[in-house]
Design a binder for these strands. Structure first.
Lengths: 343, 343
DNA sequence: TCCCGATGTGTAATCGTTTACAGCATGAAC
DNA sequence: GTTCATGCTGTAAACGATTACACATCGGGA
């Protein structure tokens, strides 16, 4: 008779509320959700009982019935990189505002792990999956999409914001013009490795193009395995003190900037006198550094909230309210780390 | 007859697999989970069908039956503060390793929001809730605990790591001794406001105590509404250039450091010549800053993984494996931002 | 031969919700 | 006095999984 699954500890369920309020579970559900008929009297009694017992409808049961988990998955390429934090925050806030909850999954820069994480999110039946960056295995993702997973890829070709491409390109142009104006004609564009994600590729291309346009020779530099300031410093020194010296380095990722700055100081390269410096990505530290760093700033937080709000509107079947164009602002912020090139 | 709930799009369920494999759903479940009997033949057929159809057991259904959601909630006091990122990452990694998934909830420094978020996590029936920092409304939390929510409070009195208190106190002592050795006798301990969370209170007390012990006068400074570098700079200048000058400032929170540094430079206070600087919390930027910042570093990532692994062992009913003591390491890292005090 | 344990399988109950449906008042319109 | 719409309620059927139980089947001792 007793085919008991382990009885959940002290969780009050809808039946408890129904009993306490002297109505049926159906009425409780209707009264609390506001859908369907319910007399004022019933509403009052249910509200009272529910509050008194501290009832919260259990998500698993609800999800099972409604096929909506009120859950948004967020796949982050690598949580170790703080760039993703504002994005995560944006998604969380938008979700929060509409009663959704966020499940984060870190792929840790591993394709295998990414797949595992995708499987998990799929198994969770998240209502939608938001990509914080480019996925490593597009094919796998597409399979899950076909299996019913709703995916939002902000970087994708028909993603929520194709504006972005143009705005970041624009900012990059400003940056390059700025450099050209100050007499720079040879610069290094430093990245960790060959650009993988869409953003990185886009950015890399934009730098190359813009530089060509204003007559600057842009030398792409891949750091590869080099992780030590001294090591990187030697390499940078080679560039800066060669016959045809590089007079500015552009850093392709915010998280890379500290390493580059340490490298320069290890090599005794003075910023900005001997070599200017610009980086993609802004932060309090970039502004606090002396000299204050010139940066290309984008508002990832705003971007994330915009995307997520839009997404949720779709999920909830509202009209998908036009996205705020301001959310995609990308701008070049000149500060003190780039100076006139030494001739 | 057709009392249809909205049919889920293209999701393959256990029945589909059972049909494809020519067995019953019970067998599928047994074969996949490995619990209970299943012939090798059945296992093979089920595995094949399952793989071919891309079957992933739906979490809501499973949770409903097993009363385990394989989900860990993480309540973050304020996602805007990057301190919490390593912690989040640690929790996520440990969870990931054991098949759990993490739901993050940001309280955004608001008590109201914190309560709402707690309700949501409770409604999600997370298997456990980990607190990334001190909760604002302990009473509310306790109510949910009584209602069946399992809460892990790393800062709590009988939290997983009381060691921590002593280790951080130890590091703080080193810091103060370091300052005393270099001849400092008056310092400022700067925080955003009156310390709220346990960590902040503990730290504040530790600084005061350690200073007294080595004969340093520690002046607590609350920034309050001051947010502008100039404003803060004036205040700092007042302290540093008074009759009885403060010769070092200790920054109580990593995220506060950039502001303080900008303030100093705005006020023309040279670090470390005119005034030394130390901060709690380490980062690439702190090391890249010139002068490189002396810091008190703690490994929040290791801490989080340790706590979470321990937690999951409990959840899964394993022996809760003793936690790695190294996980709670807190150490003072002297670098270049503190120099001998000007007499 | 008969019984018994071990192994494998299917049927059906169950988890906590939501909701289609039927039933029952009540009151208005004929 | 029928009819009918309207409002409200309860009963019971899902949702997708796990699992207790009953029922095989099989091999080996007695």
């Amino acid at each position: 008779m007793n085919r008991e699954p382990p009885k959940r500890q002290g969780h009050v369920d809808i039946r408890d509320v129904a009993r306490a309020a002297g109505v049926s579970t159906a009425t409780v559900s209707r009264a609390l959700s506001g859908r369907g008929y319910a007399s004022d009297d019933a509403r009052r009694k249910v509200a009272a009982a529910s509050r008194r017992l501290g009832y919260q409808p259990a998500a698993p049961g609800r999800s099972l019935r409604t096929t909506r988990s009120m859950t948004i998955g967020l796949l982050v390429p690598d949580l170790a990189d703080p760039v993703y934090l504002p994005f995560l925050r944006g998604v969380e806030h938008a979700a929060q505002q509409h009663g959704y909850v966020v499940v984060v999954a870190d792929a840790r820069s591993s394709t295998t792990l990414e797949r595992r994480q995708l499987d998990r999110l799929y198994a969770q039946r998240v209502d939608a999956l938001v990509l914080a960056g480019s996925p490593r295995d597009r094919a796998y993702l597409r399979r899950l999409q076909r299996a019913g997973l709703m995916v939002v890829d902000p970087e994708g070709p028909n993603g929520p914001s194709d504006i972005r491409r143009t705005t970041e390109a624009h900012a990059t142009t400003s940056l390059c013009e700025h450099l050209a104006d100050l007499g720079h004609s040879r610069i290094a564009y430093v990245t960790r490795g060959a650009p993988r994600g869409r953003t990185a590729q886009r950015r890399s291309r934009a730098v190359i193009d813009s530089c060509r346009k204003v007559g600057i020779a842009a030398k792409p530099v891949l750091l590869g395995a080099r992780r030590e300031p001294d090591d990187v410093g030697d390499m940078l020194a080679g560039l800066v003190r060669s016959r045809k010296p590089v007079t500015a380095v552009v850093c392709g990722a915010h998280s890379l900037a500290p390493l580059l700055l340490r490298a320069k100081s290890a090599a005794g390269i003075h910023v900005p006198d001997e070599c200017s410096f610009v980086t993609y990505g802004d932060s309090d530290w970039a502004a606090a550094y002396r000299p204050a760093l010139s940066v290309v700033r984008r508002d990832l937080y705003a971007r994330a909230t915009a995307i997520t709000t839009h997404l949720i509107a779709q999920l909830d079947g509202h009209d998908p309210h036009v996205t705020d164009p301001d959310a995609h602002r990308v701008e070049f912020v000149p500060r003190d780390s780039v100076a006139r090139a030494r001739s």
